[in-house]
Design a binder for these strands. Sequence first.
RNA 1: GCUGGCGUAGCUCAACAGGUAGAGCAGCCGAUUUGUAAUCGGCAGGUUGCGGGUUCAAGUCCCAUCGCCAGCUCCA
Length: 666
Amino acid sequence: MSSVESANRTEAGAGEGGKIRLTLPDGTVKEVPFGTTGRAVAASIGPRLAKDALGVKLAGQVLDLSRPLTESGLFEVVTPKHADALELYRHSTAHLCANAVKRLFPGVKIGIGPAIENGFYYDFDPGRPFTPEDLEKIGAEMKKIVAEDNVVVRKEMSKAEAVKIFEAQGDPLKVEIVAGIPEGSLSCYEQKDFIDLCRGPHVPSTGKLGVFKLTHSAGAYWKGDERNPMLQRIYGAVFLTQKELDEHLARLEAAKARDHRKLGKELGLFLFHPWAPASPFFLPKGATVYNLLIAFMRDLYVKYGYQEIITPQIFDEELFRTSGHTGAYRENMYFMTIDEREFGVKPMNCPGHCLLFKSGHYSHRDLPVRYADFARLHRYEKSGVTQGLTRVRTFSQDDAHIFAAPESIGREVLDFLLFLDEVYSTFEFRDVDISLGLRPEKRVGPDEVWDRAETVLEAAIKATGRPYVVSPGDGAFYGPKIDFRVNDALGRPWQLGTIQCDFNLPELFDLHYVAEDGVKHRPVILHRAILGSLERFFGILIEHTGGDFPFWLAPEQVRVVPVSEKFNEYGEKILRRLIGAGLRATIDVRNEKLGAKIRNGELEKVPALLIVGKNEQEAGTVSLRVRGGDEYKDKDIERLIERMKEAVAQRSLRWYQRATGSFSTL
RNA sequence: GCUGGCGUAGCUCAACAGGUAGAGCAGCCGAUUUGUAAUCGGCAGGUUGCGGGUUCAAGUCCCAUCGCCAGCUCCA
């Protein structure tokens, strides 16, 4: 407890034997004796409330019902409807889980079990992994403990007492945690045959719990460090009502349908082969989207003053020694020996760009120089971390390096943020988490340089007024950065955009420009990407659109569907007109019934189907079926083409009066 | 990399406790000429990821290896 905090408490608490003042949500003030329990206060307000109570919240802090109240402040009873109830349920359910595991597997040691989004996890050292059958048994035992309705008791104790308890029950992991906690602030929670070290708070009895499902178990290193032994983590989902739990499980199920790996296969966008692990092949349709993303960025490069360059793939190791990569990044690189010379495949573009910059002479008037490069990069990633398109071993980025005078970094970062905004809004990426990554342990460059870089970045991001979080240790090895993260369908965050400040590379490559004073100065490099890895961006885009790409990106934009072979010729005529207008169009001349052709077009997520039969041929029109089922009769083909071209030119997400993509924030 | 799970036809899946691999869709051929999410019939398709082993017999059991999936960790 800080000294300020304890001072406040002394003032507000009025001391032993005095009174404290509780301000209820309706504004009334209740005076109760110091040390009255939350349960007693709830009971004095109403028996129903006391019955529903899970805990109380006093002065912003959630407390057990049994805790004596020792300060004045805003007082609320935490009932199931209260915003903090879920957290309480989740954490208490974690204890419930450990209780059940201890009963069923007496030798199992317990680790930690916090509440997390949607539920909880609990780490155990079981000696062997849990099987799905184990999880079922554990779940059943948990239900039994709920039925027993055991009272949950908070026990404050000394470290010595706690160590004694956990040594006695054979829990060395708990003993280890106790050792790290300062004396005087230690508490345990006991429910009948189970006691666990915990700060609390918890629900008053196990009978309050019950809406949960153990979802899966997986290995997890003790304290998240791979040098530590691996424990078994059980994950559980916990909600207020069975309905919400069911909905959550259904949502997870639905999210699987938008998994980019599944859709990529179904829609024929990309594939993988065991001989090129974690390295995607893009099929024609996937390559179309990929190239359109690049074309999009190229357009904006003109607007934002970037120049595209093309640089080598493989360099003498000398380059990576100079850049520091052989030291800090070696384990992620591919090397080869040719002609008794060591070469490395580039994992990043920056070293090559430095060589290019160094080859010229620059005055302050030439800066900033913004070099963009879509070159393919290769990074060795450990086998367990690769995943679909979101984490691969070869990819290209909308990468660029800005060589700028130190005083113009702020301006450049702000321009970048505008650029990024324009791109993300095109895709309607709304839930973007921004984080400022500060110096990691493993890094190059002196601390004074890091100080400067971190200050400049934070100032720029503050100037935009956007919310952001600071992540110490999350910076690149060569400098601090601002990362932009977007979630995939299953809610896992992925970094897309980034801007990284680098004062080190210009030193290492001895880069300079001539300033107004006629003297050589050191430029600063800003590494930046907006889409980030195009592979990853593609994957995220698939998941956000569910495979329904916006019209301008759809690999096949229009499909002509003749009602029968009799109208193939008319269909071909329409097709030629569409292709002539620059649209990606095909025709379905298979010997199939109309219904089957429509079904196919829908399954392949073609945004526009143009049905042509007797009526259309006679009128010289087409019948438009917009993806999703809307049907519009007798469209004038020229007007339709105009509309489509406009949607492409404006890169609009909706091209025909209605949403074609369902953007989920799950 | 670590822990666990999985790997059968192009795709989705089946095959009792080991008994010698089967279906739908897709593909090919034929018939049908179709009006807004699946026309009918036929044919073809697999050294069960790869390599060992146990067994009279292995998709099934064991070992090893590759790949994929979940998580840990790491990162764009």
